[in-house]
Amino acid sequence: MTDWIAIGSINDIPRRGARCVKSPIGTIAVFRTVDDKVYAIEDRCPHRGGPLSQGIVHGAQVTCPLHNWVFSLETGEAQGADEGQVRTFALRLEGEVIYIDADLAMAIAAE
């Protein structure tokens, strides 16, 4: 059974912006796009560890603030010529409340 944990309201995240959620496996970046879709990915660029939550959000993508790698928020894959992948986490939006699937994070933490 999936462990959905409420992490806040969609209104707490600016459109085309992100907020951080602290978890046992480090920070998870929760994004809100211009059309109010929400995504969660690991807040750590596989290139040099840049905090992706601090990047510029465009469409369903984010550009890393350190060296401009671009990641798909949907798949976590690096776009363009760069190769890399960040973990994605399932979110569920009920009304304004965002829930995160905590199982994955807890499972990794337990390893």
Partner: peptide, 12 residues
């Protein structure tokens, strides 16, 4: 203010 605070924590 949202820039400088985490949205939430869990499992900590």
């Amino acid at each position: 203010a949202h820039e400088f605070a985490a949205l939430a924590e869990f499992g900590m």
